[in-house]
């Protein structure tokens, strides 16, 4: 059942449609990925979902409550982890967390308990008395998350929570997203790193220029990609004749050569791999490495828009 649903949501800036009739439905208990390049309208959509921006059209309902009509009630059910660090550098970790906790209506013992819980969850319990100004980027990001989960929201929205941090902290954050999901929260996760989205999301929507251009489970989306696989071969002594013959192969659609690396594109590798190896042997090519890549969301995005995600 849908925990959050967006119907025909529209947002205009100076008559330019930033969000153009977006329809989404996020199911209870899932991790929903929102993928798109910078400027696709993800953050605007998130802002409207949290009641930070007024919609110019359409409606958003969270847990049966209209965001436009009862913003405060809807907000109680949401925990937003903003893209930018939103912390008071002059307050300690504990004070930051308890301030935001109080604004969610937590008081007294319950507040203490929840702050402790959130700091333990993000691995910051031993730094409770320190100020964020002494933290590393990853720790600040974790505190940024801790401040949004104390009230155990039904819906946690994470807006690019891994921007600009080291791989270790990134894994820690991805793990905690999964853990939060297991604890019963529905998560909306926006990113322009498709690897992250592929790794943790149950369903993904791809956004571009204010439109949802694709939505579904990872498997569903993959199937929509034109059946094209990529074979990467590293080999010594690649001759122009070898490249020419590969290009002439009827099932290979494209060949790209750079130094000792060849990239071949073809609808299905399984049936043709034998042929290709044969051609290599014929021209005396010594294969050092061979890799077959399945189509991913990046390729899907490329095929849908003609652009890459990180343009």
């Amino acid at each position: 059942m849908a925990l959050a649903s967006l119907t025909d949501v529209v947002k205009r800036y100076d008559s330019k449609l930033t969000v153009d009739h977006v329809n989404l439905s996020i199911n209870e208990g899932e991790i929903f990925g929102l993928l798109g390049p910078n400027g696709a309208g993800k953050s605007t959509t998130i802002s409207m979902l949290c009641g930070l921006l007024k919609m110019d059209g359409g409606s958003i309902v969270i847990d049966g409550i209209s965001v436009a009509k009862q913003p405060l009630e809807a907000k109680k059910r949401i925990g937003l982890v903003p893209q930018d660090l939103a912390l008071y550098e002059d307050l300690t970790t504990w004070e930051n967390a308890s301030f935001f906790g109080k604004l969610y209506g937590l008081r007294g013992e319950l507040l203490k308990e929840r702050v402790k819980e959130a700091l333990e969850f993000t691995g910051l319990a031993d730094r409770a008395k320190d100020k964020p100004s002494t933290f590393s980027g990853g720790m600040k990001r974790r505190l940024n998350i801790a401040c949004a989960i104390m009230h155990r929201p039904k819906l946690i929205i994470m807006d690019e929570p891994t921007v600009g941090i080291d791989p270790q902290s990134r894994n820690h954050i991805l793990e905690s997203v999964k853990a939060l999901n297991k604890l019963g929260s529905t998560v909306i996760y926006t990113s322009h790193y498709m690897e992250e989205v592929e790794a943790i999301c149950d369903r993904v929507a791809i956004m571009d220029k204010g439109h949802i251009i694709a939505c579904g489970t990872e498997k569903e989306l993959r199937e929509r990609v034109a059946h094209e696989e990529k074979i990467i071969i590293k080999a010594g002594s690649i001759t122009p004749d070898l490249i020419l013959e590969l290009k002439q192969h009827p099932r290979v659609t494209r060949v790209e050569a750079e130094g000792e690396t060849l990239e071949l594109y073809l609808p299905s590798s399984q049936s043709e791999l034998q042929d290709i190896l044969f051609i290599f042997a014929k021209h005396g090519g010594v294969i050092q490495m061979l890799q077959i890549e399945q189509p991913d969301l990046e390729t899907l995005f490329l095929s849908l828009t003609g652009r890459t995600l990180r343009d």
């Binding site: 949290c50 009641g51 930070l52 405060l72 009630e73 907000k75 109680k76 949401i78 937003l80 903003p82 930018d84 660090l85 939103a86 912390l87 008071y88 550098e89 935001f100 604004l103 969610y104 209506g105 401040c147 949004a148 929205i157």
Partner: peptide, 14 residues
């Protein structure tokens, strides 16, 4: 500048 206004905006605070 701290972006805390953004965060507070998402909270049940008028």
């Amino acid at each position: 500048d701290n972006h805390t206004l953004f965060r507070i905006g998402s909270m049940p605070v008028k």
